[in-house]
Structures are given as structure tokens and as C-alpha cells.
Amino acid sequence: MSPTELVLRYAAFAGLATLANLAAQRLVLAGIEGRAGFVLAVIAGTGAGLVLKYILDKRWIFFDRSGGVQTHARKFALYTAMGIVTTLIFWGAETAAWLIWQTHAMREAGAVLGLTVGYVVKYRLDRRFVFARAG
């Protein structure tokens, strides 16, 4: 796969994971308001985006064909660990936008910005530590 194809594919998957994240957040916020709704929405969105992105990255970015419950559990744990710092980038940008403007449109803009920066960092970490042998 060419570098351009890789970037386009990774960007498309990041976009899908971002949409899954924001959709999950909207579902939570539709039923729960206030601070509790915000916190639960961010957690639910992060989980939805994480699982989708792992599945897509493993198969279509790093071409990792490994199988088995133990292998998947170990890789998903590493993938999640690499995402801790990048999740803090995402949460920080989203929370900052919410605190500054207190509108859902700006909260989502902050989330998109944070996710974009986070995904660039995450690709590099995953390539080096999670899928090094597979990719």
C-alpha cells in the first residue's frame, strides 16, 4: 500500500471512529443532561470509537491476521494503553471547548480537533508498540 493510500485509509477510519464517538455521545446526551450526561457521553463515545478503530486498524491498516482470544486480548490491551495519552488529548480539547463556549456545537468541534491530533499520535504509537511485528 502506498503512503497516500495509507493516509487516506487511516483518515477514513479515523473519521468513522469519530462519527461513532459523536453518535454515542449524542445518544447519551439525549437521555441524560448536565455534568453527569457530559461525563457519561464522553466515556461512551470513547468506548465506541476505540472498539471500531481497533477492528479497522488491526485488519486494514496493519494487516494483522493474528487470532485467538489471548492474542486479541493482549493487543487490544496494548492498543488501549497507547490510547490513554491520545484520549487525554481528545478529552482535553473537548472539555476546553465546552468550558469556553458551553455549546454542543463547539464541544463537538473541540472533540474533532482533539481526535484528529490524537489519531496522528496514536498511529505512530500503534505502529511501533502494538502491531510492530504484524505491520
Rank of each mutant, 00 (worst) to 15 (best):
A41S: 15
T80H: 11
Q70F: 07
T86A: 11
F76G: 07
A73F: 14
A81R: 10
I89L: 15
A81T: 12
R65S: 07
W91N: 12
Y79E: 00
W60S: 06
K53L: 08
G45K: 04
L99H: 15
W60H: 12
G83K: 05
G49C: 02
V51A: 04
A93R: 01
I43Q: 09
K58L: 02
W91R: 10
V69M: 13
A93Q: 01
D64I: 10
G92P: 05
L40Y: 12
V69C: 12
W98T: 07
L50Y: 03
K75M: 08
L78E: 12
L52H: 04
W60N: 07
K53R: 10
G47D: 06
T95W: 14
F62E: 02
K58V: 01
R65L: 06
A41C: 07
G45M: 02
V51Y: 01
Y54W: 07
A97E: 05
R74W: 09
M82Q: 13
A48H: 01
A44P: 01
I89N: 13
E94L: 15
K75G: 07
A93H: 08
G92F: 07
K58N: 04
A96E: 08
G92I: 04
Q70C: 05
A81W: 04
Y54N: 00
V39C: 11
K58R: 15
I61L: 12
L56P: 02
F63P: 00
T80P: 10
V51K: 01
G83A: 10
A48V: 03
F62D: 00
A81N: 04
W91P: 06
W60L: 14
I43P: 07
K75L: 11
F63H: 15
T95D: 08
G47Q: 02
L40F: 13
A93P: 00
L40R: 14
A73L: 15
W60K: 02
V42Q: 03
L56A: 10
L56C: 05
F90Q: 14
A77D: 01
G92Q: 08
Y54V: 00
G47I: 00
V42D: 03
S66A: 12
M82W: 02
K75V: 02
G68N: 11
T46M: 03
G49E: 01
A96N: 06
I43Y: 08
D57I: 00
T87D: 12
T46G: 10
W98K: 12
F63R: 14
V51W: 00
M82R: 07
W91Y: 13
S66H: 08
G67A: 10
F76Q: 03
I61A: 13
D57H: 09
G47C: 06
F76M: 09
A73D: 04
E94Y: 09
T80V: 06
W60P: 00
I61N: 14
I84G: 09
L40A: 14
L99Y: 13
R59H: 05
I55W: 05
I61W: 13
W60Y: 14
V51Q: 01
W98F: 14
F63M: 11
I43S: 06
G92R: 06
F63C: 13
T95K: 12
L99V: 07
K75R: 15
G67Y: 00
G47R: 04
K58I: 02
A77F: 07
L99K: 15
L52R: 05
A97P: 10
T87Y: 14
L52S: 08
K75T: 07
R59N: 04
F62R: 03
L99C: 14
V51I: 11
Y79W: 10
A81F: 09
E94H: 13
G45C: 03
T95C: 12
I43W: 09
A97L: 11
A41P: 03
